[in-house]
Amino acid sequence: MFEARLAQSNLMKKILDAIKDLITEANLEISSGGISLQGMDSSHVSLVALLMRSDGFSPFRCDRNLTLGVNLQAMAKLMKCASNDDILTMTAEDNSDTLNLQFESPAQDKLSEFEMKLMDIDSEHLGIPETEYDAVIRMPSSEFQRICRDLGAGIGGESVTIACTKEGVKFSVTGSVGSGSITLKQTGSVDKPAESVVINMAQPVTLIFALRYLNSFAKATPLSESVSLSMSREVPLVVEYKMNDTGYVRFYLAPKLED
């Protein structure tokens, strides 16, 4: 038996909206630690890792580990039937081929119950090595979204070069209408951590990435006020959105190398 109760349906809506265009179906792995998911986009260029720790739910019950194969787009549509502040309860029996979703209004005067069919999904589980990153940049998530959008839509760039030095982080593109760059400097004040740009750097690093993936990752912006980018020479970029202290959505993106 699996049961997980989440105070706000809104969080699950945001998570699904953040990942459903990149990975349309995935296995939710349920264990006593919580709910996790790993999946690659169809081109195997990026990987999504989700963790919702059990302490983010009240209650959370998992008698034995379960793998729930879910069509994320269908689940996102179903979650739209919940109001943002509805209490979400997910339940599944062991060996069940359905996941039950229950939405309860805060005043407890409306209860919606849905049964979602599960699927058998063959998915490869990848080992993500522990990495010491050359540079970790934390910035407002809205700023990151804006930069990706402007460099994509404004310049028509396909590849973005991200160069991180002690002075700042520079995003550059060359596109159909010309070229451009946006540089963010480290902010002096850390009074408002969510509004700050903070660079922790062991050594300067420059990498090239496909911009359209970064734009896709930015759909997770509503999940967190800040985002971190972790970069090391010739390894995938990590774009992490933390959900308070109860979990994260991480996107890994393989770099492009100059031929």
Binding site: S43, H44, V45, L47, E124, G127, Y252, A254, E258, D259
Partner: peptide, 14 residues
């Protein structure tokens, strides 16, 4: 010219 690498180039199958 750039070459797009794959996640499989970095993360091993488990």
């Amino acid at each position: 010219q750039t070459v797009q690498l794959s996640i499989h180039d970095y993360f091993p199958l488990q």
